[in-house]
Design a protein around this nucleic acid. Structure first.
Lengths: 244, 244
DNA sequence: CGTATTATTGAGGTGATTCAATGCACGTGG
DNA sequence: CCACGTGCATTGAATCACCTCAATAATACG
């Protein structure tokens, strides 16, 4: 992990950075070539299986990760054993960035995935040197914060249909950021995951999906896929029309 | 606003910084004397009345504020006119820090308050110079993020009693950070504010308070004051005993 | 003192949950 | 190839928690 990446990996990272610089979320976004190169020197690609943990709550936060491919969930296990899902992460998203010594939650993959691991010490050393990275980290943190607060607002006073609609639109936005149309979505997470995220039971989630299907808002061509058919309808539900 | 603070104010800031350096949350925490002085040079004290706005959603984010005294709420106005309260802030808390160009939400005072205004340009210039401030900002942002995620977890699957209990404990923690016992709390916000924060109606909030009073969990000696009588009971409710 | 604002309390309705049963897809082993 | 088990999703019926609507009470303020 601490050793320099072999040439082949370094090259894949270079191209990776090339692509993630185009995204509005990646770690490299807005960095100049030198910074990007420095970053790729400190990083390594890791392939992990579905249900694998990127890290666990309480682990020493020795690295940050960029999700290259796949999908992950951030979660905290509650005292009574249930899990609260904090959020989902998609390709291009940063995972595990914190100012604390230990990770504040688990990061678990919902399907096979590839992550780009960046050593924290090296990242911090770099961020002291070049203010570009340091500023970028702050931006990312602020963005995460805004997203969390957004979601908070979303969650508190929305009906089950509103929550699921908002969730689907979030999924759509994530897909769009990665170049997809936003009409056909991968839905790698289970109903249980969605429920734990939205504060609903499995059954409620299932019923809402069924209602959306009946109402012509979406289709599910197969397990793990959704096609959104009525964006305006979903937007309306998510925006609180159906708040109560 | 852009002019240097008069000597009297500067002195009060010096003492302010002295006190806030003791807190674990203030902007100055962990900064050395020189940094603290530089910071006080860039700041000014402002006194605002209850219901006054520190800033509004969409305003250019030209400054960050430390709440010196009083209490504030952060909120977003929903399309249908209701307000979603993102969070409450208490003395020592930083308000309005963002990486974006504009504030993402309103900041409104729930009672008369004093804030310490720091010009953003100066703060950023300083943060480029001394990495102490820059790192502190990142820490604060990460802390806010953790708090928001914590609250998210709290909110989603808790009963009304659990939510109010969690809210009271949050208030207690804020009071403790400012040196109070945590038993007698100021409760400057209305039931409506609490409801908008917790995703409950005014009536539900009122009923929960009534139930807590009947159950001997707390007393309300007067409007705007609470005395917590049964911490373990409240903790139990907040921790999800009464999850459903 | 009267008015506005905030808080409380009750009765009834609605939506999400709980409990329970069934369906469906997938992999495994006979 | 089919029987079986497992995990995930769906659906139904009954319950319960919170909301809505409405009236009253307490408090603050001019």
């Amino acid at each position: 992990m601490g050793t320099p990446a072999p040439l082949a990996v370094r090259q894949s990272l270079a191209s990776l950075c090339g692509s993630c610089a185009g995204s509005s979320r990646g770690l490299c976004h807005g960095l100049d070539g030198a910074d990007q190169f420095a970053l790729s020197e400190a990083s390594s690609l890791v392939r992990l299986p579905a249900r694998g943990a990127v890290f666990r709550e309480g682990d020493r936060a020795n690295a940050v990760f960029t999700l290259v491919d796949g999908a992950a969930k951030l979660l905290r296990t509650l005292p009574d054993g249930r899990q609260q899902i904090i959020g989902f992460r998609f390709p291009g998203d940063l995972i595990g960035f914190t100012a604390r010594e230990r990770y504040p939650c688990d990061a678990e993959l919902v399907c096979d995935a590839t992550v780009c691991r960046v050593d924290r010490g090296k990242l911090e050393a770099m961020s002291r040197g070049c203010s570009g990275i340091s500023h970028r980290l702050l931006e990312l943190c602020a963005e995460d914060l805004a997203a969390a607060q957004e979601q908070l607002a979303a969650m508190a006073q929305r009906s089950s249909e509103g929550r699921v609609a908002a969730f689907l639109l979030m999924l759509r936005d994530a897909a769009r950021r990665n170049g997809a149309s936003g009409l056909d979505l991968g839905l790698p997470m289970t109903r249980a995951d969605i429920g734990d995220y939205l504060g609903l039971t499995i059954e409620s989630v299932s019923r809402v999906f069924a209602a959306f299907r009946r109402g012509g808002l979406l289709r599910e061509p197969s397990r793990g896929e959704v096609r959104l058919l009525d964006m305006p309808g979903l937007e309306a539900l998510a925006t609180g029309e159906g708040a109560h």
